[in-house]
Structure formats: structure tokens, C-alpha cells
Amino acid sequence: MSRAASIIDAHAMLGEETYLSLTASELLRRMDAAGVSTALARPLGAGLIVDNRAGNDLVLSAGPRIRGLVSANPWWGDRGLAELDRCREVGAVGMFLDPLRQGFFPTEPAPVPFYERAQQYDWPIVFRTGAYVFADVLAVVEVARRFPTIQFVAGFGGFADMWFEIADAIGSVPNLHLDASLLWSDGIEEIIKRFGAQRVLFGSAEPRNRYAAALRTLDRLELSTAEQEAIFHGNATRIFHLEPLR
């Protein structure tokens, strides 16, 4: 089936983490093979968790078709905020936080100044969601309630075993959106039917997942043209303030 003319991948990863590894040149090769025009990439591994400057430089230097979702571990405090300031100057389009790997509850005080900085910069925040305890998607909902002007994205869509919470989570606040990269098609379809395609973003989760698998998952939903345009590029363009298609 045909897809939208332009595809923006709202969640790719660069760097190395345990057994996952992806360079910018290899991501570009995979994007070209899949017909993906732009990818929003965040750091993996040490670049995400402790050495944020190195991880952020990796995603920020990969452009122009790869845009940086930058991160600073909230436990770095003022040093982390200074890193975000630096990233803004060199073109970051949003913030990525991984409460599981970075070790914080989304609702505790440590990350609050980081949310405030995102609000100041009009940055969306992509949270990794899914694993219990730190990455509970319902904790992200609580943050979204407290910061209603920030747009949030539920990275990985609660995969795997918070799948039964993700639809109601998306529906409970207007500023939380689904990264469809790892959720199965029935779960994605439920969100589209209940809350509209404007709440769903195409993501690949490369290098954990593969573009072909993520795209075919959405193809099987037999989306309308308007739904495809929203999910494959319109929503990402709006939420991340990307340059519109010409």
C-alpha cells in the first residue's frame, strides 16, 4: 500500500548500549532504504546515562536529516541544565528522558527544573515508557498534568507490559502522544480510533527494531490518507517544530 510522501521517524537511537549499536552513517543508509526523510535521534548507553555531552554531540552532529533529541540526567542538576542550554544553541529539537536508565521517578523533585527548561524552550519531552517502577507511563501522565503546555511523547508506547495502560494514559491528558515504534498494531489502532491519528507518531526504535517491520505494522492498519499524513510526518512536524514540507 502507498504511504505518506514524507516519513519522519520520531524515535531513533545513536551510539552504543550493551548489544545495540548504530552510527549516523548507518542510520542514514537505513533511512534511505526505507524512504525515511528525517529521523529524530537520541543517545544510547553512557551518552544517555552519564556522559550526556558526548551523547548529545553524537546526535547533534549527525544532521541535517538527523535531528537531535538531547538528554541530560536530572541528577546532574545545574550541570545538566547547562548542557541543555548548550544543546539548544546548536539545534536540538527536544528532550529525551529515560527514567529507567537514568534512575529517577518522573514525579520526584530532581527532574522538575528540566521540565521547566523544556517549557521555557518550547521543547517536547520524549519519555521512555514501559518498564515498571521508574518508567511507568502513568507517572508521565502525572507530569503531563502538571505541565500542560509541554507536549510529551510516550516513547516505546509502554512496551511491553504496560500495554494495557497506554490507551487510557493517552486519553487522560491532551498533551501526551504515542511513539508507535514498539507497540503492536491492535494497540496503535485503539488509540487512533479513540483519540485520533493526531495523537500518534511513527517511530522506528532503530537499531533495536527495523524500519521495514515498523512500517509494515502501520501499513496493516490500512490508514486513510489523512491519518497517514498525520502519523508519518504531520504530527512530528507540529510537535517538534520542524520545518514544514515544501
Binding site: W184, S185, D186, G187, A212, A213, R216, T217, R220
Partner: peptide, 17 residues
């Protein structure tokens, strides 16, 4: 446990490796 689409999705996960 979920609908039929889960089967081709998971076959894809093998074939794309």
C-alpha cells in the same frame, strides 16, 4: 491473545534480522 496482525508482525521481527 491479540488479533491476527500480531502473527505477521512477529514473523517480520524474524525476517528482518
Amino acid at each position: 491473545a491479540a488479533g491476527w496482525r500480531l502473527l505477521p508482525e512477529r514473523i517480520d521481527n524474524v525476517l528482518e534480522a
